[in-house]
């Protein structure tokens, strides 16, 4: 059985301007020991999806529907106290605004120790030892002296390493990393990618990696889901997504990326902009930007169709169960 299986999840936000359908009927699976990528452009609902799994949705948000089956149990049925324990021991998350999520007035060593003591019941000495070990593990040199540093004494890359150390200190079975490299400089991004690659192998952790960067997907993920306007439009093994993208949105995005490994005369234009999630259009949400669309696309949202092994696409090009072609 998969480690995490999200079924038909809906998370909406009640705002002054209307109901934001941030996550609208999502299915997502993370297999044990594998890295699942979740890609999509800004505002498509990636972070809300992750926060829903953690049950950390801010006030005005609400999970309306669905199941989040983790290690065989539905997280949506857990009490808040049970969730606190699961978050400390089983599922960890590296948050998108990671550079501000360290406490500025506490030595970094203390912050890791605190996390370790709270969730694993180790005594001070053992926690300190573990903190030093974790810092070493994430590639911070001379961790014995570094634990006394305050966050502002560390560079952006080092702080991200500390966040990763904290997240992994409880040996979680699932790590969720929300844009772990986005705010960092290019060379530092590469270091963090290499670090994550090594750690998930060494610790055998499953990873849900959220990013907007297909380069990082190619390097780290076993399988990837492409999100658009609160929904998943395509899911496939990583190689398949790049070699054989099925959804017009995925195809458009891949051809819109400037490449360092080849000369490109012109980038593909995916015309228009992302849909408003307050009153999204009827039918397929990508319809208005889609280069070729049928009449039915305007009326009805397509269901996922299996177009290859483990390859699902939600697009009317592939017909639907019961509907032959359009």
């Amino acid at each position: 059985m998969a480690l995490l299986e999200v079924r038909n999840l809906k998370t909406y936000f009640d705002t002054a301007r209307g109901m934001v359908q941030a996550v609208d009927g999502i299915n997502l699976t993370v297999e044990r020991g594998k890295t699942e990528g979740l890609v999509g452009e800004s505002g498509c609902g990636k972070t809300v999806m992750a926060l829903s799994v953690m049950r950390l949705i801010p006030n005005r948000g609400k999970i309306l529907n669905g199941e989040i089956i983790f290690e065989g149990e539905d997280l949506l049925q857990k009490t808040p106290a049970e969730m606190v324990r699961i978050r400390g021991r089983k599922i960890s998350m590296i948050f998108q605004d990671h550079l501000s999520s360290l406490n500025p007035v506490l030595q970094v060593g203390k912050q890791i120790e605190e996390a370790i003591r709270k969730h694993q019941g180790l005594d001070r000495l053992a926690a300190r030892e573990k903190a030093i070990k974790m810092l070493g593990l994430v590639g911070i040199s001379s961790p014995e002296t570094r634990i006394k540093d305050y966050p502002h004494q560390l560079s952006g890359g080092m702080r991200q390493r500390v966040m990763i150390a904290i997240a992994l200190s409880c040996n979680p079975s699932l790590l969720i990393a929300d844009e772990p490299t986005t705010a960092l400089d290019v060379t530092i991004q590469a270091q963090i990618v290499e670090l994550l690659k090594r750690l998930i192998k060494e610790l055998d952790t499953s990873l849900l990696l959220i990013t907007h960067d297909f380069g990082i997907v190619a390097e780290l993920c076993d399988r990837v889901s492409v999100m658009y306007g609160g929904q998943i439009v395509e899911r496939a093994p990583t190689r398949e997504i790049f070699k054989n993208p099925g959804h017009p949105y995925t195809r458009g995005l891949l051809n819109a990326i400037p490449r360092i490994d080849r000369d490109m005369d012109r980038l593909d234009n995916v015309y228009g902009a992302v849909p408003n999630l307050i009153s999204p259009p009827d039918g397929c949400r990508f319809c208005s930007r889609c280069p070729g669309h049928y009449e039915i696309c305007h009326r009805k949202n397509p269901e996922p169709v299996e177009v290859g092994p483990d390859h699902l696409v939600s697009c009317w090009i592939y017909g639907q169960k019961g509907v032959t072609h359009v």
Binding site: T187, Q189, V193, G215, A218, R239, D261
Partner: peptide, 14 residues
């Protein structure tokens, strides 16, 4: 060279 190396290439075969 390190800047060039750092760019993640969207191709799993590279």
């Amino acid at each position: 060279r390190s800047l060039l190396d750092a760019v993640a290439i969207p191709d799993p075969d590279v």
